[in-house]
């Protein structure tokens, strides 16, 4: 699939080779202003001295990173130990995001497969239906989710009415509620790339496999999955990365009892701490982690392409 895209593109590339610099300029300007400049600002701020109650003093300091990695006790005068607080917070965010990603994959893959196997006329309708809830603001959807899941909410009412449970399930203010919220927030990001990949999949391959006495499971595992792997990868990254920095779902559905990376960073800017360099440093650590994950997956994908091509 990747090979096909590359061979189709070469003629076009030649035509525009000379003008390429100019044609790319708008993209570069946009990227520089909207991506590079803020990241650079964050990087600089993370190495500055904090000003009491927010703001920075323009003096170089490693204090923000020191605070992140070393624990010097409640009063800051004990010998440094490894600081577990922020590692714990990062770890929590990572596994919450991973759980949400798995949940999205479990629901998103069959959904995408279902849409891709409908008639050509119906596919856009299904895609359209998937996107409809996302016209509503995320905050409102998250609050609605909370209403649905509450102890006296419709979900518990329904489950009790059909006799499945005797007393309401406590879902709100748990980690599971956060995962559900993240899953629901980012599900289309999983469905759409997988759908795009499955749609391009040549189903004759599955038929050929069946002709050669492959079971349905084997066909799925050895023929379909390898072919749509890039779509699955893209979907997982698109769900995992924003989930990791999210703070709406943890605050509203998780009860804000435990910081996630997003809420920890928010606290540094909007809370009493007012520690901008530390907020910037935590953001840089998060950014570095995301970059490592992206680079790792890009390499995996390159490997897969090579093997496939």
């Amino acid at each position: 699939m990747a090979a096909g895209a590359a061979s189709g593109g070469s003629a076009t590339t030649d035509t525009y080779k000379e003008a390429r610099t100019w044609l790319l300029l708008p993209a570069w300007v946009t990227l520089s202003i909207l991506v590079l400049a803020p990241v650079l600002m964050m990087l600089i701020y993370s190495f500055l001295t904090k000003e009491f109650r927010g703001g920075v003093i323009w003096e170089f300091s490693l204090a923000a990173y020191d605070q992140f990695f070393f624990d010097r006790g409640l009063f800051g005068d004990e010998p440094p130990k490894i600081e577990w607080t922020y590692i714990t917070i990062f770890w929590r965010s990572i596994w919450q995001a991973a759980a949400a990603t798995l949940l999205s994959l479990a629901i998103g893959f069959p959904t995408a497969y279902f849409i891709a196997t409908r008639s050509e006329n119906m596919r856009p309708v299904w895609v359209f239906l998937i996107t409809i809830p996302y016209w509503v603001n995320l905050l409102i959807r998250t609050v609605s989710m909370k209403f649905l899941l509450r102890d006296q909410g419709p979900l518990n009412d329904f489950l009790m009415n059909i006799g499945l449970i005797d007393s309401p399930l406590h879902i709100v203010n748990t980690n599971f509620a956060v995962q559900l919220g993240l899953f629901y927030s980012y599900l289309p990001f999983m469905v759409l790339p997988i759908y795009a990949a499955v749609e391009r999949y040549n189903f004759a391959l599955s038929e050929a496999a069946a002709d050669l006495y492959a079971s349905k499971w084997t066909t799925l595992r050895r023929i379909l999955l390898p072919a749509v792997k890039p779509g699955v990868f893209a979907g997982c990254i698109l769900v995992f990365v924003p989930s990791m920095g999210s703070f709406l779902a943890p605050d509203l559905l998780g009860g804000a009892k435990n910081f996630m990376i997003g809420s920890l960073i928010e606290e540094q800017f909007k809370g009493n701490a007012g520690n901008w360099p530390f907020g910037a440093a935590a953001s840089m650590v998060l950014l570095t982690m995301v970059l490592i994950i992206l680079m790792f997956s890009a390499r995996q994908q390159a490997k897969a392409d090579k093997a496939g091509g």
Binding site: F52, L74, F75, G76, T85, T88, I89, A256, K257, N258, F259, S263, L264, E267, G271, N272, A273, N275
Partner: peptide
Amino acid sequence: EEVQSVYDQIWTNLKK
């Protein structure tokens, strides 16, 4: 500022 930084630590401990 000194007490506030201890308060911030207590708050972070509370929500870690």
